[in-house]
Design a protein around this nucleic acid. Sequence first.
DNA 1: TTTT
DNA 2: TTTT
Lengths: 163, 163, 163, 163
Amino acid sequence: MLNRVVLVGRLTRDPELRYTPNGVAVANFTLAVNRTFSNQQGERDADFINCVVWRKPAENVANYLKKGSLAGVDGRIQTRSYDNNEGRRVFVTEIVADSVQFLEPRGASQGQGNDYFGGPPSGGNDFGNQQNPNQNRSSGGFNDDPFSNDGKPIDISDDDLPF
Amino acid sequence: MLNRVVLVGRLTRDPELRYTPNGVAVANFTLAVNRTFSNQQGERDADFINCVVWRKPAENVANYLKKGSLAGVDGRIQTRSYDNNEGRRVFVTEIVADSVQFLEPRGASQGQGNDYFGGPPSGGNDFGNQQNPNQNRSSGGFNDDPFSNDGKPIDISDDDLPF
Amino acid sequence: MLNRVVLVGRLTRDPELRYTPNGVAVANFTLAVNRTFSNQQGERDADFINCVVWRKPAENVANYLKKGSLAGVDGRIQTRSYDNNEGRRVFVTEIVADSVQFLEPRGASQGQGNDYFGGPPSGGNDFGNQQNPNQNRSSGGFNDDPFSNDGKPIDISDDDLPF
Amino acid sequence: MLNRVVLVGRLTRDPELRYTPNGVAVANFTLAVNRTFSNQQGERDADFINCVVWRKPAENVANYLKKGSLAGVDGRIQTRSYDNNEGRRVFVTEIVADSVQFLEPRGASQGQGNDYFGGPPSGGNDFGNQQNPNQNRSSGGFNDDPFSNDGKPIDISDDDLPF
DNA sequence: TTTT
DNA sequence: TTTT
């Protein structure tokens, strides 16, 4: 069923990288996502959202992100539970990231070249597991913008503004 | 910052409706969202995701959804904490729904008429807080489908299939 | 960079299935997504959104969805252009679906068993390309709901309701 | 019905700001969203996605974003049509943004203070129409991370790695 | 050219 | 503590 999450926020601390017994990489990190509205005290609260990422992107996260880095996450919500050392059942809600995007400007990672993110060897600012790069023949622009009416009087109506 | 969640799943039990001291409605419910892949044992696990919704849509949820109902949620992740009655700090991660969509077929709610959801007085199958119904003049369709080549030989290339 | 789309709507007509020269399946369909708000005339407009899906899920879409079917789509926006038979450049914006979910109730596809969707041989109501089924050990629930205060007076504040 | 889009990309040119006869602001801009995978030629294509935003956020977009700015968009897909000056029906697919987030680092807009975006008078790096700032009492962190096992041997299994 |  |  549908389960999709997209976040942009900052790492609250350096990511933690581990490996399973079989050598599969896992990285954990927490994203502080500032709310877009203020609370009663006029402050902007944040949500602190735990994220997990596996395999290659896990290593990229560990290598190129650190406390304070601005990052985007595309993933799904996962719930699980485990018994802690006091014999209590603990319930966990976290985001399993399909891909993590590094959103720091070039300077922040001393990269160079014409890519936003100078980091990973392979070039590119996105750490993803097998994506779905499907149909994309002649990637073109977009046109016929109804607003780009060349010199003719503008025609924007108010019809569509319900509140 | 960006924080967006979209879910489709089934209510694990009837929603709970309450009111704040000021009379504002809040509904809580949990969505079981079946995973789209199987685990090692060949079973489909589910994620159990707590949701909150406020005001009018809260009342609609309480009135038209029940245990087992299929529903869609569009919202954001919220984290909070509180001290429980043992003096322990409890951390909560939940979804604050901006809108909840009822996805049961008409029959399921004995509704009628030409709306999918026969429920709410106002008609419509969606419970939302103030949406952003912006520009939408002549709502039209889409056209010039590259695939609708009238009688001419099909032309789909394999260029775009990287794996 | 981030590019994520989630839709729930109804097919405007039967999906079209084709194959590339290399035998890769592609299905095209249009989703009518009713808006959640009414226009000036009190009517609910719809958006008509073109979707493409590749490989196995393409065949599932062709086999199990038809005009009017309620479906969910998780994908990304793609823009491309091509020259039509009048030598005009045509710009296309469409959704490339990573996965398509069949949201019709069981009866609608004469299925049976304890799966929501009785359709595909493999069982399951979701047609997806290689998903990212990562960490998901003991799938558990969620707990310590601040609202489940056992018999104690309810404590919901109005603090958080800014408008 | 569900219709949700989240994008992060760069403006292909300066945004265009206009006003309806009633004085409502509308801004148009196109986002270039680089794909996360390469094409057959080893290049990263981009999708060029037209966006519209209304009212106050429209003015913020016009004031604080320009060609090349990195921005996040949270919105919905809209389709419409109009007749162009050759009497042809043109179909448009675009994103109506509920909110636009400015993702440039502080320096890029000569701002200051402890907010990421020093721009808008009201402070804050997000331009949104009326959001849904609901329940958010004691915004706290997150804890009980199953991975933060203090000095005890790590326990990550491979159970969950299906491919 | 559109669905319920 | 979970839904079909």
